[in-house]
Design a protein around this nucleic acid. Structure first.
Lengths: 331, 331
DNA sequence: CTGAAAGCGCTAACAA
DNA sequence: TTGTTAGCGCTTTCAG
């Protein structure tokens, strides 16, 4: 039914080998006449190459698999844009596999799907691998790279912002604005969260601020986590919070407004990510902004073996969610 | 290098046929003993089935391709959740192909990629097909379905909200709240935009409101489009705007606040979509809320041939962005 | 219940 | 420059 190179061969009185050559653009191995005939026949028959067959014989698919989960955050489109851009330049197709909401079986399944198709590389976006995931990945002879997540293991490829530095910068910024009772909200208890926690603690320690452990409210980077974090802070006299993501910041902000707090006077917020969410809230959120597009691009480079373990710099974007504390009275 | 069924056959002294049968779970065609031997050998060898080979011989891939573009909106994750959920139930894998930002070549490429892999179906999420896209799709013997977009052609499968009704409801709501000078912002000039425009116009006509054409500000559903729409409205005495998406509404809202308008008193907004963006803004956005998850689920049903052309109902979610106009003075 | 053998659509030696 | 041929790894008749 669907035409194959055989049909083209029959129609042109050429061998399938010649047809394959012109369709594969093996320049110099066929005559202009053969080329013309094949191309025309292909057009007439509505021929389309069967990629599956090609992949089988070549034992290689020029495909990058991107495994991604439904993070409660919203930065993944930028990362994917970056991936797509660079992958296109390197002649790789991109297929995105979806791993649900941190659901282990779906993560395994996505990895297996990628592996079973001999993709040329796997990019794991914001995925915390469990033991099974790591085994699957290690056992296969396929390059993989964690993107927007750093496993602390120099031997495992990754591209991300420097989470320690990122939290450190944000905390320093708040301290520079007179805050000393500073919360950290919404981080998880895995690599990213722990790295950010360390940066936050380092900045506080750097200024001899004795942190109250209750200043750290864990969560999953979601809007809901931000909302939940507010009320504990109110009794702690916290004047500023570093939010683990824009979504956490937004949750914190709407919860605060629900309690009739005035921002930033009653509560300053610095957010991590710097997506468009920061512009949408009132007041706009000051953020440590990650370069997600570049993270995506470099992820491709890394998995295609063109770059070393990579840290992408962040920038601090001042908007309107931090108050200078000097002239204000701490509660 | 990578083990194949041949290796398992050699190791177990069985034929590759038998190995294939147990690995394919062709129950009743092999003995328990054979099964045990094969399974163990497979485990020991770290065998993983080569999906590409299977797809070649079966001439069929149990894969649904989802083609999606980087819409400036943000509802796609919900749709994908729904797709994934239903696809899983039907034993279909899902691969997501990314079509850039309404870029024709990338759209063709994504469609071709799907077609070249004989996927069992193609779901196009919020994709406006051009002539080439439609030809490609029609020519192939692969079921496809537009999701969150309705082409007005009863013969083409689609699942979406009723755009006419959705705009009609929103407009009626504003009229019921005393508004008569009502804008429509951010719609595109394709199917979705035109359908919503018609619904908006129908509601106005229904109340003998003579609409000023300038009340309609076109755009691409983006935050920027919302921001750009504000200033024209100020000179037109518009008291309320129906925003074509949550992002448009957010843009409108921040632009209005930038002009020191008080919302909703100075400008009421109803948004279309009802994503989490509506909760994040101040005031929260009243919206006509689409059931994106269900749209995704039904998209799978439709493409797998289990449902007819489908309209998913919407609901109006009242939040805080619409003022009752009775007791207020129109500018 | 098991094995032998024929392909799926294509590429890549190897000959001609 | 072109054709012949042998597979890629798997499923599936058809015999046994």
């Amino acid at each position: 039914m669907k035409p194959t190179i055989k049909d083209i061969a029959a129609k042109t009185n050429l061998s399938i080998a010649t047809v394959s050559r012109v369709l594969g653009h093996k320049q110099g191995t066929y005559s202009a006449k053969a080329e013309a005939k094949v191309l025309q026949a292909a057009r007439e028959l509505g021929y389309r190459k069967n990629t599956v067959a090609v992949e089988l014989v070549k034992k290689r698919a020029d495909v990058l698999a991107v495994i991604i989960n439904a993070t409660p955050t919203n930065f993944s489109t930028d990362i994917i844009d970056g991936i797509q851009e660079r992958a296109g330049q390197l002649g790789q197709q991109v297929i995105i596999l979806y791993a649900g909401n941190r659901e282990a079986p779906l993560q395994h399944q996505a990895i297996n799907t990628a592996l079973q198709r001999n993709v040329s590389g796997i990019l794991l976006v914001a995925i915390e691998p469990d033991a099974t995931d790591r085994e699957l990945l290690q056992a296969a002879q396929v390059p993989f790279c964690f993107v927007s997540l750093n496993l602390d293991d120099q031997n495992i490829k990754s591209v991300s912002s420097n989470n320690h530095d990122l939290a450190y910068q944000a905390t320093e910024y708040l301290i520079a604005h007179g805050h000393t009772r500073i919360g950290l909200a919404g981080i998880d208890d895995y690599h990213t969260g722990r790295q950010r926690l360390a940066g936050y603690q380092a900045a506080l320690a750097n200024h001899q601020i004795m942190a109250d452990p209750a200043w750290v409210q864990r969560g999953n980077y979601s809007y809901q986590a931000g909302q939940a974090a507010l009320s504990p802070y109110r009794s702690l006299g916290v004047t500023a919070v570093l939010a683990a993501s824009d979504m956490v910041a937004a949750g914190l902000l709407t919860a605060a407004q629900g309690q009739h707090l005035t921002l930033p006077q009653d509560l300053s917020i610095v957010s991590i990510d710097g997506t468009i969410i920061c512009d949408i809230t009132t007041p706009a959120l000051t953020s440590v902004t990650q370069d997600f597009r570049e993270i995506g691009r470099q992820g491709v480079n890394r998995v295609m073996g063109q770059a070393a373990q990579t840290i992408i710099p962040v920038t601090l974007t001042e908007r309107a969610s931090v108050a200078e504390l000097d002239q204000l009275e701490t509660k």
